[in-house]
Design a protein around this nucleic acid. Structure first.
Lengths: 244, 244
DNA sequence: CTGCATTATTTTGTCAGACATTTAGGGGTG
DNA sequence: CACCCCTAAATGTCTGACAAAATAATGCAG
């Protein structure tokens, strides 16, 4: 692990890259302890603050964790699916909000991926997954439920569908797509009637999953996609009534 | 934007979170300049090194960029799809390597998502996408091609398929799934015969896309998934010949 | 007044040293 | 054996300073 003091890049960035490469290549394994900050600063011939900046970069990516006290230090972190979800969601959310991705494009991607889970979920969903979905559907029928809560419940419902596929990698990938759309979905005001329609579709999806009818799930998801887009377009049209 | 000096969390972590929230909420827009490190350290009542650690955390996530000199400083970064790909791939790679995700599970997720792109790609693929795929197929038939190069070409082929769907969000999601599997795929040694079979399937997929035959693409992708798993299992069995 | 070289200023990047805080471990005492 | 205290090691934070880069301001020559 060497760095180039004459490189235009920051020393802390170079050090972070060197350590990151060591982790990715397997040179540093999970739970391995890195040298102390003092030792690292000696190895790389830089000051301790510079080493610390490098370590903070790695900590921001959940690549290491630090612990104070004797026998403390920086340890290679086992990247959990949980942490990966979080980063995935943050990244996806920013990507959508900063790059003028239209609601239509995000919606299309999300439902395309969700349909990809349909057949697996129809095969493997457990009673637990079905129970979660039924519970969320029930919650969605409560009168007086705020739009925010309705959206949260919607996410939980679809999350259960995806988790039903029993593939953590798929769940991880979908988490970003589904949750990143939350801010966009929250902009949609759900009328009494549209909630009824969505709940009906959710019920149909749960029924089809119970019967392990994959094609039915897929077609209902497509209907839901179309309907979601319709609502969004209706609201967009209302906001710009003079557009033509 | 306030922080709690009595919180158990590091001050730099709190400051990073506060600024990140401001960016996500839109309080700080793209290309906006953050206060200088000296001003931030005054605002948060901490020292400059602490502020710097916070800024490095954000830089590690590509949320900000910094520039030296007068009228320099830290600016909110427009997260490009390119940068997001990179983070997605790093995260996915570590997730797979650290969590004992089996080849089967990763493979299943990858092909499920790729099939999700099939119908869109059949509708929208351009002549360019087809040309890229044909070129990669041709490369894959070259004798003496290394396994590494064959895998690279394989990634490029599937990348073209996914890009054909014309949905950048889908491309972004798939990039992680496909590229993160590279290290696993590289462990598979491709025999002469298996390469022929894979090339034949690739050719079939390109043909089906040319004819805009979505179901055919999906079924060929399923065949490719099955075949990939067969090869992997065969190699695993060879490595553990006494297992039973 | 214009154009260019020079100087100033602002800001990040880096360093050195110090103190505070937390935690594990060792050793003494009941 | 259990409990307490002390020590040592490590991260967390602060202060102050200088280096390097890039822009802005200045002054001079034409």
């Amino acid at each position: 692990m060497k760095i180039d003091p004459n490189s235009p890049a920051d020393l802390s960035a170079q050090i972070a890259t060197a350590i990151r490469d060591a982790i990715i290549s397997g040179e540093l394994i999970v739970d391995a302890r890195l040298p102390s900050e003092a030792e690292l600063s000696e190895q790389f011939a830089v000051s301790r603050p510079t080493v610390r900046e490098a370590l903070k970069r790695l900590a921001a990516q959940s690549l290491i964790r630090t612990q104070r006290g004797a026998s403390g230090g920086a340890f290679v972190n086992r990247l959990s699916f949980q942490e990966a979800y979080g980063q995935q969601i943050t990244t996806s959310t920013l990507l959508l909000s900063m790059n003028d991705v239209s609601f239509d494009v995000a919606c299309e991607a999300r439902f395309a991926m969700e349909r990809a889970c349909a057949s697996l979920s129809a095969q493997r969903r457990t009673a637990d997954h079905l129970a979660t979905m039924r519970a969320e559907i029930h919650r969605q029928t409560q009168p007086g439920l705020s739009d925010q809560s309705f959206c949260d419940s919607d996410v939980a419902f679809h999350r259960a569908l995806v988790d039903g596929a029993g593939n953590p990698v798929l769940s991880y990938q979908l988490a970003g797509a589904v949750e990143a759309m939350q801010p966009l979905m929250n902009m949609i005001t759900f009328s009494e009637r549209s909630r009824e329609r969505i709940v009906a579709l959710h019920t149909g999806i749960a029924d089809a999953l119970e019967q392990r009818n994959a094609p039915k799930v897929e077609s209902l998801l497509s209907e839901l996609e179309t309907y979601t887009l319709d609502i969004a377009h209706g609201i967009a049209a209302k906001r710009r009534p003079t557009a033509g």
